[in-house]
């Protein structure tokens, strides 16, 4: 025990240096965490303080039976399915092109990464006008055939989620590009030489060497994409939907719904439960990804 005391005294600065983090984490991490569990057992509201009633697991049951919550979950999975495929697919294509290009590779990389620094409010402002009924994309589509007439996609039942996925792809595919490009540089060139000697075509080399060798990068991208993607909020909020995501709830995401319950309906206890429910779903999907990805890729 004396030795431990000596070591504590000797390395006391260590404790001093982690104290700011520890205090702030106790106050703004651990306390809210416990509070969120506590709040799920109550109905609670800022505007109706007398409404403070113990409901047990009532909020959980309400959440599991709430069609709007499931609609929001469906929407976000629909959106993220398209987004993750597009963003990482385009990221892979552009990474391979940049890897093969000998000149100006850096210049193109700079341009492709540029949208990453744009804020969501700016992104959705630009995105809304560029994809809007008289914006450049639809003007082109109408002029050259695919569309008969301009589409007001924001008010459609099924279009908002794919269009937002495309707008988000523009912003984020640069990150995939850069991560996969770094992965390409780590692949042993001898693999390609050996394959070329065996007569493998360019496509076969891509399919059987490049893609499998990039598995660690893909795994990282998928895990991070899903964790952040399922928590989408500002994209649908700033593009001007009401807090229920439009008349068909076509753009309702789980976090938007949570916001609606907390600040429109003033159901703090229920909103807190929805937050926990979403966190559990995210944790579950992350665990599934860890289970189903080949061990050597993690």
């Amino acid at each position: 025990m004396k030795r431990l005391g000596q070591r504590i005294w000797r390395y006391a600065w260590g404790y001093v240096f982690v104290t700011p983090w520890l205090l702030l984490y106790l106050a703004f991490g651990l306390y809210p965490l416990l509070l969120s569990f506590y709040l799920t057992y109550f109905t609670y509201s800022f505007v109706r303080p007398e409404d403070y009633v113990f409901v047990g697991i009532g909020n959980w049951i309400q959440g599991l039976l709430d069609p709007l919550f499931w609609k929001s979950l469906f929407n976000i999975l629909y959106n993220q399915g398209i987004f993750i495929l597009l963003k990482n697919g385009l990221g892979l294509i552009s990474a391979v092109l940049l890897f093969k290009a000998t000149y100006f590779s850096r210049l193109f990389r700079t341009i492709y990464f540029m949208p990453v620094v744009v804020s969501i409010v700016v992104l959705m402002t630009i995105g809304e006008f560029v994809t809007g009924p008289n914006g450049p994309v639809q003007t082109l589509l109408v002029r050259y055939g695919p569309l008969d007439a301009p589409v007001f996609w924001k008010f459609d039942r099924w279009l908002p989620m794919p269009v937002i996925a495309i707008i988000n792809t523009w912003k984020w595919f640069g990150i995939s590009t850069v991560i996969l490009l770094a992965g390409l540089y780590t692949i042993d060139p001898q693999l390609y030489e050996a394959a070329a000697i065996d007569g493998a075509s360019g496509w076969e080399q891509f399919r059987y060497i490049t893609v499998p060798q990039l598995q660690p990068q893909f795994f990282f991208l998928l895990v991070v994409d899903l964790i952040f993607g399922l928590q989408m909020f500002a994209e649908v909020f700033t593009i001007g939907y009401d807090v229920y995501g439009g008349i068909y709830n076509q753009a309702l995401t789980p976090v938007l719904y949570l916001y609606a319950q907390a600040f429109d309906r003033s159901n703090i206890g229920y909103a807190s439960t929805l937050g926990l429910l979403l966190a559990l779903i995210i944790a579950l999907l992350t665990v599934i990804q860890f289970k189903f990805f080949p061990r050597e890729a993690r």
């Binding site: 703004f28 991490g29 306390y31 809210p32 965490l33 509070l35 969120s36 709040l39 964790i227 399922l230 928590q231 789980p254 976090v255 949570l258 907390a262 703090i268 909103a271 807190s272 937050g275 926990l276 979403l278 966190a279 995210i282 944790a283």
Partner: peptide, 9 residues
């Protein structure tokens, strides 16, 4: 822990 958990509390 996903950030959404901390939003309301």
């Amino acid at each position: 822990i996903p950030g959404v958990l901390f939003l309301i509390p």
